[in-house]
Simulated assay, not measured.
Amino acid sequence: MAGLIVTNNAWSNLSVAINTSVTTIAVTAGQGARYPVLGVGDYFWATLTDATNAIEIVKVTARAVDSFTVVRAQDNTTAKSFAIGDKFEIRPVAAMFADVRAEIASSVAPKLNTTDAVTTYFPLAGGTVTGPATFNAATKVPNLTTGDNSISAANTAFVTTALANSRDSILAQATTAYIGTYSGTSSTTATIALGPLSIVTGTGKAFAPGQSLRVYYSDTAYMEGLVSAYNINTGDLSLTVTNKVGIGTYSSWYISTYVPTGSSKGLISFMGSNA
């Protein structure tokens, strides 16, 4: 079925500069293979980032080796010019989660005619009914929370509510699992400072070289930088810290992806206090 396609750790650099109206993006040779193969009607969301951390979100509708066809200025961003070497990558953005929610809702939505009504109820323990039949017993339906016995008929409102609750539960589980790959914690003792940082976090994360991460202790004590390396099997994580807030040495960190300076698009971040 055509629709949203996602993958982990897809990033690249522009091989050709673009202005605000270009709809074809070319990346460094060989880097296009990191992205999904798109069929008819398939797409994915991608983020362009320049040297000042200004961003633009685009909708990618086709890929030919290292060249992408895009729709510019998506998800409440504006079209910008980008230079050779600027980043092009798949990030978790608001539009992606909205699409996931819509696809889940569509697949689980009730397929009921809301004008239908249950007008008869009868227990049948074997045998057959032939010819015209008239049932005079009162209709028995459960209320909106539980049925009154195992053979009660369910009215449209009851079934609609049950399916909606199931849909919301599936969505919550799917979202939690997705966000979990882009965030983590660490008990490594580290001092807030610029430059190289090595800590240990959970295994199986989607951290990738060049990705922006925030290593957070509190609102007044955290570091931000780019991933240098991550071992998916051991959880060893290396970053180059380019921005810091506060001072001190701590051993209880929250780690998350973030969009640098001036935008909340694609933000998955723990906020809290260890005090």
Rank of each mutant, 00 (worst) to 15 (best):
G3Y: 06
V6F: 13
N8C: 09
N9G: 09
L14K: 01
S15Y: 02
V16N: 07
A17N: 01
A17G: 08
I18F: 03
T28E: 11
T28D: 09
V37Q: 15
D42L: 03
D42E: 08
D42V: 02
W45L: 10
A46P: 04
T47Q: 13
L48Y: 04
L48Q: 12
E56F: 10
V58W: 04
V58N: 01
V60L: 06
V60F: 03
A62W: 00
S67M: 09
S67Y: 03
T69D: 10
V71N: 14
V71K: 12
A73I: 11
N76V: 13
K80E: 12
S81E: 03
S81A: 15
S81N: 05
A83D: 07
I84C: 02
I90M: 15
P92V: 05
V93C: 07
V93W: 07
A94N: 15
M96D: 06
I104W: 11
S107N: 14
S107F: 09
V108W: 14
P110R: 10
V118M: 05
V118E: 07
F122I: 15
P123Q: 07
G127Y: 01
G127A: 08
T128G: 06
T128C: 07
V129H: 11
T130M: 14
T130C: 09
G131Y: 13
A133N: 13
T134N: 13
T139K: 15
K140E: 13
V141M: 07
P142H: 06
N143K: 08
T145G: 05
T146D: 02
G147Y: 02
S150L: 13
I151T: 12
A153R: 10
A154W: 15
N155E: 11
A157H: 09
T160I: 12
T161W: 00
T161P: 03
A162F: 14
I170M: 05
L171Y: 15
L171F: 15
A172G: 05
Q173F: 03
Q173L: 13
T175A: 11
A177H: 13
S183I: 05
S186Q: 06
T191G: 06
T191P: 07
I192A: 04
I192V: 14
L194E: 02
L197H: 01
L197Y: 02
S198G: 03
I199W: 06
V200R: 10
G202M: 13
G204Y: 06
A206D: 12
A208L: 04
Y216H: 07
T220S: 14
Y222E: 04
M223C: 05
V227S: 03
N233A: 12
N243G: 08
K244I: 14
I247K: 09
G248N: 04
T249H: 10
Y250D: 02
S252F: 09
W253F: 03
Y254D: 03
I255Q: 00
I255A: 01
S256R: 02
T257Q: 01
P260R: 14
K265Y: 08
G266V: 00
L267D: 15
S269I: 08
S269G: 01
